[in-house]
Simulated scan of single mutants.
Amino acid sequence: MSDKITIYQKPTCSKCRGTLAILDESGQNYESVNYYETPLTVDKLRELINKLGLSARDVLRKDEPAARDLDLNTISEDALIQHMVDNPDLMQRPIVVRGDKAKICRPPENVRDLL
Rank of each mutant, 00 (worst) to 15 (best):
P65E: 03
G18Q: 08
Q82M: 11
K44T: 05
Q28E: 10
A67D: 03
C105R: 11
L23E: 02
I75Q: 10
T19P: 03
L48N: 01
P11C: 05
Q92L: 08
P11Y: 09
I7F: 07
S14F: 08
I5C: 12
I7V: 09
D43F: 05
S32F: 12
K15Q: 13
T41P: 03
C13R: 12
V96K: 11
I75A: 13
D63L: 09
N34H: 07
L20H: 06
L40W: 00
K101H: 13
D86I: 00
R106C: 10
K103I: 11
K103W: 12
E25L: 08
M84S: 02
A102P: 05
T74L: 11
G27V: 04
D69F: 11
L54F: 10
M84K: 11
L52I: 04
L90V: 01
R17W: 08
L80H: 03
L72E: 02
E64W: 04
T74E: 10
E47I: 00
K103L: 14
D113Y: 10
D3K: 15
L52H: 06
N87T: 13
Y36I: 08
P88G: 08
Y30G: 08
V96F: 10
Y30T: 03
L60C: 07
L114T: 03
K44I: 01
R112D: 09
Y8K: 03
M1I: 06
A67E: 04
S32K: 15
A21T: 14
V33I: 09
R106N: 03
L20D: 00
T6M: 12
D24W: 08
S55Q: 12
D24T: 06
E64M: 01
N87P: 02
R93W: 07
D69V: 11
T38R: 12
D71I: 01
L45C: 04
P39E: 01
L72F: 01
R98A: 06
L114Y: 00
K103S: 08
A102Y: 13
K4C: 09
N110R: 15
P39S: 09
R112N: 13
I104Y: 07
M84F: 05
R112Y: 14
E25P: 02
I81M: 03
D58L: 05
I49E: 01
Y8S: 09
K62E: 12
E47L: 06
Y30W: 14
T12R: 14
G53I: 00
T6N: 10
C13A: 08
I75T: 02
L115Q: 03
K51W: 11
K101I: 05
E77N: 13
Y8Q: 06
L52C: 03
S76V: 12
L80V: 05
S76Y: 13
K103P: 02
I95K: 12
L48H: 01
L23S: 03
Q82S: 11
D69Y: 11
K10Y: 15
V111D: 09
P88A: 10
V59D: 00
A21E: 15
Y36G: 07
N87C: 08
L20W: 04
L54D: 03
D43C: 05
N73L: 14
R112Q: 13
D71R: 02
L90F: 07
T19A: 12
